[in-house]
Nucleic acid binder design. Structure first.
Lengths: 132, 132
DNA sequence: CCATAAACTTGCAAAATGCAAGTTACTTGA
DNA sequence: TCAAGTAACTTGCATTTTGCAAGTTTATGG
């Protein structure tokens, strides 16, 4: 029997997915790669302005996870173009689910690069919170 | 025109979704609520063992975000039963996308509560991408 | 009266994040 | 030749978030 703990937290597919892409930045990098960006500079220039040290670390982690591959597009100095593997491209479905949820439930949000004509969530009137 | 900055990072639906649920724990809480758990204790007992201070903080944030509502199920001491709002239930699609991705791409993961018979990702034998 | 329990809260230590500045290895224009 | 620019990182450090353990509050059962 295998006694070694195979998973960090549990065998749940959601938990293990979150161990890879469960933070504020990783899926934004994947989003940009899906949109055709592929150099460090292009990724760093996105509207959310990811800190450069975080970007570098995330690219390493995504590469280690088999989601991204970096292929040199020039020698001297060597520069890498980052692209998604099939595993990475498959995250498109997750991104799509987030887009749909965000557009329906977070007023004003939209899919970048589609202008204001895109359907967004209506601003709710009131919302009350329980008193302490 | 509105001059106040409406979004923390950008107007992207993905970025704003991640500002709410983009961490290692939040979607696991939502997963459990979708699976019918609703007390603090039930949520704390999940296999991932969320630290109790994190659980308390996440429940507050989810309530503030309109994803969860806490209704008292007893007074003295007052205890809350947490349930998902429609906005919260709608995250089921995101969870489902994560489940599909995890099962296909993270070997050994599965949907909790479905036993080992559930389809999981094959340990990468040499498998070529099948024709669709 | 005492042990147990659920639901939080508090106190840190450790890790992750974010900002700015520095470094490396070139390319380009004067 | 030499200064300036540029892409891609790296480093330092202050702030924030996480995680573990222990404590608190209100109540119940023996």
């Amino acid at each position: 029997m295998s006694s070694a703990k195979p998973f960090a937290r549990s065998a749940c597919a959601v938990a293990n997915s979150l161990d890879i892409v469960g933070d504020k930045w990783t899926l934004l990098v994947v989003r940009d790669l899906l949109h055709g960006k592929n150099t460090y500079g292009e990724l760093a220039d996105s509207p959310e302005h990811i800190p450069t040290n975080i970007l570098a670390e995330r690219l390493k982690r995504l590469e280690a996870a088999g989601i991204v591959v970096g292929t040199p597009y020039q020698e001297r100095p060597v520069r890498y173009a980052y692209t998604l593997t099939p595993k990475g491209k498959a995250l498109g479905d997750v991104l799509l689910a987030f887009v749909r949820w965000g557009k329906q439930h977070i007023p004003g949000t939209m899919v970048m690069g589609q202008g204001t004509a895109a359907k967004t969530a209506a601003t709710p009137r009131t919302r009350k919170t329980r008193a302490k």
